[in-house]
Each structure stands twice: as C-alpha cells, then as structure tokens.
Design a protein around this nucleic acid. Structure first.
Lengths: 147, 147
DNA sequence: CAGCAATCCTTGAAGATTCAATATTTTCGA
DNA sequence: TCGAAAATATTGAATCTTCAAGGATTGCTG
C-alpha cells in the first residue's frame, strides 16, 4: 500500500495554532471580567497562588504563574506598591525572597475569584459541562506528556 | 437537595490557566524547532497564510495570525526588509494593502512546514493520535462557542 | 576550610507590543 | 454631489517583556 504523501495542512489545523487561538479568546474574556477590578490576569494568578497563606519564593511563583523571573519581579514591585503583597527574606536561605499576600490582597482575591468563577460557569453553560471537563482532562494530559 | 457551595478551585484547575500552560509549552517546542531557520512563530504563521499565493489585506492577515494591526505592520516591515513578502496596493480599494509572498518566502515556508509537521508528528507520537485528534476537535468547538 | 561553582533574585538596556492619534480612501445620506 | 462618518493602514509615544549581566548567599570540592 502506498504511503500517503505528507499533507500540508492549513494553519488552522495545527495544534499550536488552535491552542493559541483558544487561549487568546478565553484570556480576553477573563481579562474583560477582571477589568471591573482593574487587575491584569497575571496579578490574579499571583494572588490566587499566594492566597494559600504560605510564603512562596519568587522562583516557585514564576513557575506557577507562567512568567519568567524579571517579568515577575517587576509585576511584584507594582503589587507591593499597591499593598497587595509583601516580601519577606527567607530565614532558612537568605538568597530567597518569600512572597506573602496582604489582607488587602486577600479581600481583592475574593472578589476576583467570584469573577473568574462566573466566567467558568459561563463557558460551561454555552460549551457544555461534559465537553469542558473532557477538554480540561486532555489539556492536563498534554501538558504532562509535553513537559 | 442542597446546592453544593461554590468551590474555590486552585488555579491549576481553571480552563484559562490550562490553556495558557499548554499553549506556552507547545509554542516553546515549536519555537525551538523554527529556531534552526531563525524565524519566529508569528512569521511562520504569516508566511503560511500567504503561501496560498493570493493577496491578503493587513486586516485579514492580522485576524488570521492572531495579531493586532500595529504589531503586524511592524513585523511585516521586517519581513519586507528580508524580502520574504511584499506590499501591493489594492486597486479595488486603495485604502487596503495586499500582502504577497515572494519566491524567497515560498522556499523558506517549505522548509518551515517540514519543521512544523515534524513537531505535530512528535506530539501525536508521545501523546497519542486519538487524544490529539479529540483535543483538536474540542478546541475548535470551544473557539466556535466562545466567539 | 578556602575558594569556586551554583542558585536566587534584581537591575538596566534592548526589544517588542499596545494605545492613541493621524493620514488616506471609501461609503453613504442629506 | 458634497460633506460627514466609517474603514484601512501606519506612526510615535508609552508600556511591557526579555536578555544579559551583576550582587548576594549557599553548596560543594579539593
């Protein structure tokens, strides 16, 4: 049997493109919701990670919120100015800086969580619970297999 | 039956986060492959769209490659300098600029297509043909329902 | 235990993106 | 048909990100 020649798919059929497109659209929607609190998506992620109340090092945090170190440092600078988070030097390893969330940050996080959850609900409604759950599962497993 | 209280999921369970993470990882891999030709992912997308040989207006192109107008204009400036594409004023509507791919651009696109296809193949191999196809299907339908 | 390499974070400069404003052309209504 | 409004692309300034380098601390090795 002859091997089929290598297809040359349009860009819209590439996984990388579909991911970029979906990411952009969902991110836009989330951004629009968070705008009522004037908070960029990245800051919401940071607040959410820190809202466990524990101290997180900059490296750990950068990894968790998908930012590289210098970018994170500068965003954190702004958030410190806004009294949302604060820095504490790690006593165990003085190279590290442990980030903590402030009370003001906690209060804001609660309001942001509500906005984010309402987006998730909106998606689940128009897209379907089943499809949403299945998509999440596939994405997680893709991330596992790609890392 | 009591309604379950609103859960407060960790950020890693949000669809927006999973999409961002998967997108970043896949994009990184693609970027790494394209690096051998020294071409950023955005330029590959542009070349790929233009490789149908037809003229595409800037607006059309911006939409297709997920960039906003000013960003695209500046990337196109570079690609024109590199003789990969060229501008032609649309005779039907002189507000528009129709972008065309050059011979040099076509040759480059062929090499880039091979690199991109090898990435797709690599993913399909480690992640599974079935899962890949299903993920693509779900992403397309998410994009439809979200737009 | 001395010094050298590795880790962690920050900084400043360079590069890229975005926002707002502008120039040009077309469309449409009075 | 004239003029105002809309559509298209570009530009320059402001903003954000990234890259390369540096300062501080820790870990490791001879």
């Amino acid at each position: 049997m002859a091997k089929s020649p290598t297809r040359n798919p349009p860009i819209t059929e590439h996984l990388a493109y579909l991911l970029a497109q979906a990411n952009r659209e969902i991110n836009r929607q989330l951004e629009a919701r968070l705008r009522s609190e004037g908070v960029p998506v990245e800051q919401w992620r940071i607040l959410k990670v820190l809202s466990d109340g524990k101290g997180h090092s900059m490296g750990e945090l950068a990894e968790a919120v998908l930012l590289n170190h210098p970018t994170l440092t500068k965003i954190i600078d702004r958030m410190v100015s806004d009294s949302l988070v604060y820095r504490v030097q790690d006593p165990e390893d003085r190279r590290k800086v442990l980030m903590h969330i402030s009370d003001r940050g906690k209060a804001l996080t609660q309001r942001l969580n509500a906005l984010a959850l309402s987006q998730e609900a909106h998606i689940a409604e128009s897209y379907g619970d089943k499809a949403t759950a299945e998509l999440k599962r596939l994405l997680e497993s893709l991330i596992d297999s790609a890392t």
